[in-house]
Design a protein around this nucleic acid. Sequence first.
RNA 1: GCGGGUGUAGCUCAGUUGGUUAGAGCGCCAGGUUGUGGUCUUGGAUGUCGUGAGUUCGAAUCUCAUCACUCGCCCCA
Length: 412
Amino acid sequence: MSVLQPVRGTHDLLPEEARRHRLVEEIAFDVAKRYGFGEIVTPIFEFTDVFSRNLGETTDVVSKEMYTFTDRSGESLTLRPEGTAGVARAFISGGLSQHLPLKLFYRGPMFRYERPQKGRLRQFHQLGVELLGVEGPQADVEVIALAAHILQALGLKDQVRLELNSLGDAPSRAAYRDALVAYLSGHKDKLSKDSLERMERNPLRVLDSKDDSDKAVVADAPLMVDYLNDESRRFFDTVQEGLAAAGVPVFVNARLVRGLDYYCHTAFEFTTTALGAQGTVLAGGRYDGLIGQMGGPVTPGIGWAAGIERLSMLYAGEAVVRRPMVVIPMGVSDSAVVVTQRLRQAGFTVELGYSGNMKKRLARANKLNACAALILGEEEWARQALVLRDLDTGEQEEVPLAVLEDRLARFR
RNA sequence: GCGGGUGUAGCUCAGUUGGUUAGAGCGCCAGGUUGUGGUCUUGGAUGUCGUGAGUUCGAAUCUCAUCACUCGCCCCA
């Protein structure tokens, strides 16, 4: 359109959409609070190392999607592409290891230089949680149950399904990786070009390829579950049992993998078919090694993040907007502000009509979905009264100023 | 980063094989009611036809480039 476009992949949240976003956030946060989560707010940029050293050098996010820049002091900074690394960094910086276990909720913009598409933006918004300091699988169960609960609160229960897998601990994962690469190497001729590259960079990614030929190869590939050592196996079983006990339906997907390197053991995704190619609505996993790797005290963690734009597109509810009442001065405009402020101070939502004749102002009141109009006419004003018109019934009456708040009580 | 589609008024969209002043509905503004809205009715305004080049006597229409959105891949929330 015009020259004044927003930057590619960014967009404005106009009031209506902003309301939906806030509503989604509030519903999520409200549920999270019941699980004991408190909000943490971290900066939207960090030293580049925070991300580049911890998400995995070869991941797409780090290798080609970060908004990295040098500030005026020559420091390399990066707009956060995800939330977990920043929270982990804040955990270390703030010495929060003394307050374990820690339940944190966050929300805000994230940035990735990707090709924009529906449900995929360069500046997008996530909300997420992190539970730090609990080794046992009950943490996984609680965090996933919370996710399911939030999706239910948003009315999305029937539109999403939970897929679950275990990536095992580091030794299990390494063993599996070797076995998988060995297997794939024997079928190089049938793999897509993308998958041949993935074999080098991130072999597990071949497992969720959408290419038909790849799928045929993958169908007979070794499975992660068969390479889990006893401990990892037990962990995975316990998580599944816990979710069953919590009443959260699960589809075990042995080919589910994660894009970032810090994950281990539990990996999960809530997916939908309603958003085209961007089917993941909420996803996360366990990252026991991350904080230690960053230089902090070795601390287990598990968390997830959800895309607010994606949730908002699926969410059918509407934000409830409080209906205002409208003050319409007719010839006593100086006094209108007095009445208006008095009512606002008393807790009412009040709009003051700015201009036009009575007809126009009432029409505007109507468009604002106002519940009532307070008409200040000279005649009534002389009697220290005004006209109250109920805009739903059309009935109107004269109300003395002295009892105004009482008479308006039903519109509160 | 790769391949396909789309781009006309604030919004949703027509626009015939290139042809003269580019349309509709909704919305907006104004009147019918100079202190009374929602319905009805009458009238009005609005477009660099995404942008830039090219072909042509003539381009919203054809060609190329470019930007944005969109679908799939990729990636992921």
